[in-house]
Design a protein around this nucleic acid. Structure first.
Lengths: 232, 232
DNA sequence: CGATGGTTTGAGATATATCAAACCTCGTGG
DNA sequence: CCACGAGGTTTGATATATCTCAAACCATCG
């Protein structure tokens, strides 16, 4: 019996495309790996040697400029796919934001498997197209939105992505409580802002009553409409 | 004999994955279409009804904020693929920057064809992964680079993408002359800047001797090293 | 407790946006 | 052929959002 049987993302990850036999085969070339918060799985600029599925936790994809500024170019959640198949170098590093569990494959093995199992390639394509859509929406945010719009948009996106099985969320309207997988600095790196600006925007939202900040790593959405309105 | 035989992007577009018979089949569900500069092929927010290959010309993908600011989220060149297969709504409009020729398919027909011909799906996947890489690099630019770095990066990327068959470029080192498919406003919309800032940065580069501006729609790279250094 | 790392708050500097006017360029029509 | 007009572009002066630098603050963990 493969370990995939009990996998919590079995039906949401790209593996959903595969039948029992295929799963068994894929399982034989993959292995589980645990990451602790802050640990990196892939480094920017290295040849793409491995790919993975996220089982649990949140990870960031990030690049930096020469002068040390960092930009987070993507965030992945349980059931998401990580890495760059088909022989390219990775343009970004992959680092765990929280403790995480992933299912890793050597890129070579995975490429071969994907080529022989079109249904997997198909799922991967759909996922990649979706990711591209999301990334383009993020470009609008980075290029044209103000700091306050950025922070509001960030909270909304976070809410949507955390409200999925596999992540703990207390989901009782109209007050939604989120556990932030990001430090203030990381939020800044997602939004292309400085940590101080993020902090000021968050306290502004709190003072206005739009959100609550019970602790550094928690956010309560108190007024969803106001947040949506503020997202631009 | 299919019209694909004389197609200049036959071997660079996703069609390169197909053999003669498949091409004939694909050709039967597609048709050529000419666009004049400024004409739109797809509108933001509408259901994805068609996809296309670019044969000639340059097109932009763009979205806007509520308050009327526009952001160009992608630029496509000959042999690139346009549109959103697999039943989603398009998050951005597609508009010709220059006169252009494209090969369009109904999205439904194309989806079906892609599902039956995994080699096409495979090519599309590789292309989409590459596009995602490029888009993420652009996020770093939007989030973390200064106006001068943005403009320098823009010119470099433009140079790389125009130096491909199908686009007219005078390519004689060390002075490369490019024909700009963008107005100043469009450059601003790519970079997340205002038209005035773009103009000032360009004249600065000109005064420094890094570039020449023979006309509004032409750029000469006079000092590539300086441009690279300025791109951050 | 006291140290440490992350966060908030404050005051000031600055890059870029905004507003406004002058300036080309190119097509049109007299 | 020249004058005109219109759109796009450049240049200038000023405003402002965000960054930068600095200090206070606060939670957490030994």
């Amino acid at each position: 019996m493969s370990t995939c049987d009990q996998c919590v993302v079995r039906n949401r990850s790209i593996c959903a495309a595969l039948d029992e036999n295929e799963i068994k085969l894929l399982n034989s070339i993959g292995r589980r790996r645990n990451l602790t918060a802050g640990e990196s799985l892939i480094w920017e600029g290295e040849d793409s040697v491995l790919v993975a599925n996220v089982i649990e936790g949140v990870l960031k994809l990030s690049t930096g400029t020469e002068d040390g500024h960092e930009q987070i170019v993507g965030v992945v959640y349980p059931s998401d796919f990580i890495g760059r198949p088909f022989g390219a170098t990775t343009g970004y590093g992959v680092t765990a934001l929280t403790d995480a569990r992933v299912c890793v494959f050597s890129r070579r093995d995975f490429d071969g498997f994907a080529r022989e199992h079109p249904s997997l390639g198909q799922k991967l394509l759909e996922r990649t197209l979706g990711e591209l859509d999301r990334t383009r929406r993020w470009m609008l945010l980075l290029g044209r939105k103000s700091a306050s719009e950025k922070v509001a948009s960030f909270l909304l996106e976070l809410m949507e992505r955390l409200v999925e099985p596999g992540c703990k969320v207390v989901f009782d309207q109209p007050s939604r409580q989120l556990e932030l997988p990001f430090s203030r600095q990381q939020i800044a790196d997602v939004l292309g802002l400085t940590i101080e600006t993020v902090s000021r925007q968050l306290t502004r939202l709190k003072v206005e009553g739009t959100i609550g900040l019970p602790s550094r790593r928690e956010v309560v959405i108190r007024n969803l409409d106001a947040l949506v309105a503020g997202a631009g």
